[in-house]
Design a protein around this nucleic acid. Sequence first.
DNA 1: TACTCCATGTAACCCGTTACATGATTAG
DNA 2: CTAATCATGTAACGGGTTACATGGAGTA
Lengths: 184, 184
Amino acid sequence: MKENQTTYAILGLLTTECRTGYEIKQLIDRSLNHFWKISYGQIYPTLQKLVNNELATVNSVAQTDKPDKKEYVITTKGKEVLQDWLREPIKQLPSERNEILLKLFFSSQQEKQLTISQLKNAQQKLTERYHMYCGIEDSISNSPSPDRTYWLITLDYGKRTTCASIEWCKDTINKLYDEEAHNL
Amino acid sequence: MKENQTTYAILGLLTTECRTGYEIKQLIDRSLNHFWKISYGQIYPTLQKLVNNELATVNSVAQTDKPDKKEYVITTKGKEVLQDWLREPIKQLPSERNEILLKLFFSSQQEKQLTISQLKNAQQKLTERYHMYCGIEDSISNSPSPDRTYWLITLDYGKRTTCASIEWCKDTINKLYDEEAHNL
DNA sequence: TACTCCATGTAACCCGTTACATGATTAG
DNA sequence: CTAATCATGTAACGGGTTACATGGAGTA
């Protein structure tokens, strides 16, 4: 059986309080979203796959006040597989596609003023993101989950790299302004 | 015509000295790789697409000392399309999938010592990456391209965020050590 | 009545990587 | 002779998003 990392993400989420595909999606959107987005189109088939490979079990639960649901529980084998994966050294560092950098790479093709507004826009978006992280941080801090410590560490990462990006925006904007002034 | 960002990347590269698919691939590997990787499987079909949409023209060039090649030249329409795209506000901030954070998110499932070695490994890989950036920086600094200034700015971004990540690794490792010591 | 939340699922499509296929020229 | 560099391409596959389909229960 070959599993991609998203499979492990979903397997890992079964070690939290999450029991259903719906709950998994909610937790992802609340706490994992900043470094691993997953859509329903992956969640439900993957849960099925986990059951097929005996890494989890399902059972349907009838509810009176809400639609019925399927509860998934990680098996002993599932936990072992998860731990094996956790122990494996990381294969690749994040190397994301970065739209801002791509545009900047070709910015000699446009006026400096336009590049500067582009950067200001990016800086603003980054600042919003920073505040969002602070919000998520608060909500996790108030949750009683035993994973809380580690979850906060992932947020710390997001905050720090975002901070660095914002600083870079600021400095780059100033640099371009200086060059502009120098040419006049 | 709907174009994805990779199409614009290749269109943009036609504004540099690059004229052939092969040269484009080389420049990507040397200078763009840290934020936008592109494989031959995309380059050649995309070049064809650019020609079909009249954003570039081709002509075959016979060479005696080397295999024949196809030279692509960006058209006026192509430059306009590129500039329109450059002017458009960025749609999304980078939100990469991060393997380190994913593992860390579930690290309450394993011993702290294992998590610490995972982080040390990550820190080392990040440090290597930092040195690689410095290397690319040197090679770009010595190139006479008019795009040099902007290319260096993209590298500055890489260096800064990598630095922030390394700091985060260090601090996190220390934090986990402290917790470990506290429990003993 | 309409909207939101709960809940599960699939099919079409897009994007991108990998592996394969081909072949000329030059240097060791 | 062999490896490396130059050079172009495609087919298969995998992963992921989006849109669609369905439908109950509660609330404004």
